[in-house]
Design a protein around this nucleic acid. Structure first.
Ligand SMILES: [Zn+2]
Ligand SMILES: [Zn+2]
Ligand SMILES: [Zn+2]
Ligand SMILES: [Zn+2]
Lengths: 119, 119
DNA sequence: GTAAACAGTGGAGCGCGCTCCAAGGTCAAG
DNA sequence: CTTGACCTTGGAGCGCGCTCCACTGTTTAC
């Protein structure tokens, strides 16, 4: 499929797709006329990319993990390593949230904290 | 305290602190010589800001929530509303992670998905 | 008095993740 | 043959979250 169709089916802009390609997130082959040709797989792959982005992963990290998957000798092992990695990240975020909650509770802000110094 | 001390105690750069001030994240009063003067509260507040940032909140959102806290008529109610809001965000991220895990599992990538088309 | 350390402002630049041109090539329909 | 939809590249610009720099003023130490 060409870029317009992929854009429509993925909900991304053509510019974003071209940008992703430059960042190694997406592969295309060229037709004789120079047009990019994408595999059908690109649609679910881009959905995955967007989800990973919403979870706070950078494009570079997503591209690196994609490469890991492709280059892994043992695909199943690579997958579970990636899962463990992502879940660890979310667990870390959860415990940081607990800290945040405590911090917030400790400082029920009332008025300007600089007032005393001001007088 | 002046900006250098706050920088040292918060682990942020002076530039970052000045930047936060322009974004409404931090308040200072000026000494007669024009130097910024910060309250001791600024240290835990900046720690909170960094934590919130690591959790994926933008500086604008953090500033808005800080303002909500200060302007809330009922501080306790405002606090629990903010907690609920943040926890909802993390819950949403968790469920998105589940989707991500499934997506990944479905597509144990092996080789180039464009190869068939290429030949 | 002078040097060093600290403060201020303004503006440029940067990495990220794009968006939006401008100028041009390709292709199918009428 | 023209029109229009679609594609190409290149480059500028933008919001975010800063960093770095130049230049200037203030305070502290000797
Ligand atoms: Zn990894
Ligand atoms: Zn004040
Ligand atoms: Zn809110
Ligand atoms: Zn290929």
């Amino acid at each position: 499929m060409r870029i317009g169709e992929l854009a429509e089916r993925s909900g991304l802009s053509r510019d974003a797709i071209r940008f992703y390609e430059t960042r190694g997130l997406l592969e295309s082959h060229r037709s004789p006329n120079g047009y990019r040709e994408f595999a059908a797989d690109a649609v679910p792959w881009l959905a995955y990319v967007r989800t990973a982005q919403r979870l706070g992963f950078t494009l570079a990290a997503i591209a690196a993990h994609g490469a890991e998957l492709r280059e892994a000798p043992d695909s199943a092992a690579a997958l579970s390593a990636l899962f463990a990695e992502k879940i660890a990240v979310v667990d870390a975020k959860m415990s940081e949230l607990a800290v945040l909650r405590e911090e917030l509770a400790e400082r029920a802000v009332t008025g300007c904290p600089l007032r005393p110094e001001q007088q």
